[in-house]
Amino acid sequence: MRYAVYLNVAYKPSIRDPEGETIANDLLARLGYSVEVRAGKCLVLYIEAPSPEAARAEALKIAKEARLGNPNVHVVEVLKVAEA
């Protein structure tokens, strides 16, 4: 089965995110919304695997090996796994 694994490369909570702050303070606030925003980068990996769990594990293994995030500042999380 082919799965789409949606990864988010996000900053750790300890790292300030000026892009998210700009969107929150200079765009949303101007429209009257008081909403905290964190920016990330979404990568979709298409993976052949016997199960969604296996696809998820494979995606996280690839992310670690290829350093899709810099472990010093990023966390890589799986947003969803869908049949593709």
Partner: peptide, 17 residues
């Protein structure tokens, strides 16, 4: 060099951006 781990740390988007 930082991404390759030859130097420690990370270089991320400027603040202010």
């Amino acid at each position: 060099l930082v991404e390759a781990g030859l130097l420690p740390g990370a270089l991320i988007p400027n603040d202010p951006p």
